Computed example of a mutant assay.
Amino acid sequence: MSIFFFLVSFLMFFFLVLGLICPKAAIYWGDKSKRSRKKVLLYHGTGMLLSFILFVLFLPELTPEEREALAQEQIIKAEQKAEQDKLDEAKRIEEVQLAEAEKAENERIKEAEKSEQKRLAAQEKLEKEKKAAKEARLKEEAEQQKLEEADLLEEKSRQIIKEQARGVEYESLARNPDTHVGKIVVFQGQVVQVVEDGNDVLFLVDTYFDQNFGYDGDTVYLTYEREDGEMRILEGDLINLYGEYQGLVSYETIWGQQVTIPQIQASFIEMTEWVY
């Protein structure tokens, strides 16, 4: 009988799950429009609960002989476990004692080795310190020489660029871009916008100077790769820019207008001051 109620309980569970997914597939009676998950829970949920309770109630009880045999089996297992625990504990104690004795011997040997190693290490450290001090001094002298050579090379490179740079009218760059592409040009102006992406920097620079209003108009599109640690240039700064003319470039302003202006790839930029 308990098996029968278990099967009924399992069947009710199956229809409960099926009904929660599709109520019409689990209820075959009544108005189709009223077959809902709520009724699935009411019918199949209640049926599953009742059949499971009956399954538990009809479970067969153990006979006295079965109970005695089960109790005897549990006693034997407990005795076996206690005996095995004793053996394991004795083995563990023996292993711990052996490990401690081995550890003590190893520590004695290591202590003797450490004393010798300390003496050798102290001697080696002294020699290394002398060698390191000498290498550091030589390295410092070499780096200082490299820095001086790099500064001289950079200054020479800038001087060459300055000598090659030509002052070109803004209107000429705008009207005849192909004539000047690839040439080194120089302009003085005021930064009106800065866009940075790591060390890649974009500037919009006004190069037309008015005695009354300062720099305003004749804007160039200046791209520049800043070196690590180099001072940042901000909006409003006055600069002298030296670089290669790239032609014309078009971009969209924040007001949605398309603007075409000369583009220069800067070789280097110098900060300057107002001159009246």
Rank of each mutant, 00 (worst) to 15 (best):
E65M: 01
L70A: 13
I254H: 00
R226Y: 10
K118A: 15
P60M: 03
G247C: 02
K114A: 02
Q145M: 12
V17I: 07
Q80L: 03
E169F: 03
A71H: 12
L41K: 03
G167Y: 02
D210M: 00
K38F: 01
D151I: 08
K139L: 15
T219K: 05
L59S: 10
E196G: 03
L50E: 11
L62T: 11
E116D: 12
F203M: 05
Q123D: 06
E107H: 13
V168D: 02
P60A: 04
A101S: 13
D88P: 00
V40H: 04
L120F: 13
E89A: 15
I261F: 04
K38Y: 02
R92Y: 04
E273Y: 05
F52C: 00
W255R: 06
Y170D: 09
E94T: 11
Q258E: 03
Q211V: 09
R158W: 03
V186P: 00
I76K: 14
S267V: 08
Y28K: 08
F13P: 02
E94I: 09
Q117D: 11
F13M: 15
Y242N: 04
K114R: 14
A174N: 09
A26Y: 01
Q257S: 10
Y43D: 09
L202M: 07
K24S: 14
N240L: 03
Q265G: 01
G198D: 12
I27A: 00
I233D: 00
Q190A: 13
Q74P: 00
G19V: 04
E79R: 13
N176D: 15
L62Y: 05
E94R: 06
L98M: 08
K86S: 04
S33P: 08
K146M: 01
D151H: 10
K146E: 09
V195D: 11
Q246I: 01
E129H: 14
L234G: 14
V259F: 00
E111G: 08
E68W: 05
K86T: 12
H180A: 09
R119Y: 05
D197T: 15
M1S: 15
F55Q: 10
S157V: 05
L152K: 09
T63K: 15
L59I: 12
K39H: 01
A122C: 02
L98A: 10
A71P: 05
T260H: 07
L126Q: 03
N106W: 13
E102G: 14
D216V: 05
D218E: 08
I264D: 02
E65F: 12
I21R: 12
A25C: 00
S51M: 08
Q84W: 09
L153G: 00
L50T: 10
K128E: 07
Q144G: 14
R166Q: 15
Q193G: 06
E107F: 13
S115M: 13
V56A: 08
V192L: 11
K110I: 06
Q188T: 14
V201K: 08
R158P: 02
Q74G: 02
V17A: 15
L50C: 13
V96T: 00
Q123R: 05
W255L: 14
F15W: 15
E68F: 01
Q257M: 12
L62F: 07
L238D: 03
I184S: 04
W255H: 14
K139Y: 15
A122T: 11
K146I: 04
R232F: 09
